[in-house]
Design a protein around this nucleic acid. Structure first.
Length: 257
DNA sequence: AATCAATTCAACCGCAGGGCC
DNA sequence: AGGCCCTGCGGTTGAATTGAT
């Protein structure tokens, strides 16, 4: 079913020169149109290989190295909710790729059910809830193409000074690195209101590292967003879209008919 | 120092789904 | 409606690395 792969395309590890060519090509033409990328970049690679290399390795802001405790915690929780939906899970881990998350799960978490996974969340999850795994699958739904946030017109109000290195904070959570942050996620993921599709956050002000972030959000019923915008607006609109997906997954009713 | 086993992770493969004609 | 093309995802593989003996 898959596309025909041109004969004689290179496989295996990427050289620095190839990386450089691919990077320049994507920077020049932007992401997408992967079928044209090998030709445009002058690479003897298939488009899949190019896409994967970009997404998993060359893309800016990719976070490397060990997963932080809160990241592990989040992976475990989201996996409990979503199952092997690595791209969805990775979407909530800034700088992490689905491949990273998948590899991490398969190599570290899956085979260590009795130590690391429990260590991370021992204070909040009982053994019974650990073992009772109910995977919630995203439900089919349709969005109206006229919605502003689907037309690249997400309602985002910029209310604060913008800081640079915020790609790692796609969602304004209270100091995600500490216990409060984990608690916050825990509360969010176990919030019964979410399951009713009634989550409503408005004028939620948080202080973190000297910067103030503000989030106003109403799901289930209206599509009003009021996020503090970061430098990279695409990241934010993507983020909002992604979280709408999550609300939808978590809730029964559909946000948009 | 050499060898073997275990682990990690980048990359490949096959498939599903959406858009277009 | 159906076929083709394209994109993206998840499972799997295998080379590279690390650790143990």
């Amino acid at each position: 079913m898959d596309m025909q792969v041109p004969l004689g395309v290179r496989k295996g590890g990427w050289t620095e020169e190839e990386d450089c060519l691919l990077k320049k090509c994507v920077e020049k033409h932007g992401e997408g149109n992967w079928h044209q990328v090998p030709r445009k970049a002058g690479l003897n690679r298939c488009r899949k290989s190019c896409r994967l290399r970009w997404l998993n390795y060359l893309r800016p802001n990719i976070k490397r190295g060990n997963f932080a405790v809160d990241e592990v915690d989040l992976i475990i929780r989201l996996h409990k909710l979503l199952g092997n939906r690595w791209s969805l899970i990775a979407g909530r881990l800034p700088g992490r790729t689905s491949n990273d998350v998948k590899n991490f799960w398969n190599t570290r978490l899956r085979k260590k059910p009795n130590d690391q996974r429990e260590d991370v969340q021992k204070s909040k999850m009982t053994q019974s809830t650990m073992e009772k795994t109910e995977v919630i699958r995203p439900q089919p739904r349709t969005f109206s193409k006229n919605l502003p946030w689907l037309m690249g017109k997400t309602i985002i109000t910029d209310k604060t000074d913008q800081t640079k290195e915020n790609f790692s904070k796609p969602f304004p959570t209270p100091s995600l690195g500490d216990d409060d942050g984990i608690l916050w996620w825990d509360n969010m993921l176990s919030d019964p209101d979410i399951n009713k599709g009634m989550i409503t956050w408005t004028n939620h002000e948080l202080e973190g590292g000297g910067e103030k972030v503000e989030l106003g959000m109403q799901a289930a019923g209206s599509n009003l967003f009021s996020c503090v915008q970061e430098d990279d607006q695409n990241d934010w609109s993507d983020f909002c879209m992604d979280n709408m997906d999550l609300w939808d997954i978590l809730g029964d009713d559909q946000v948009v008919p």
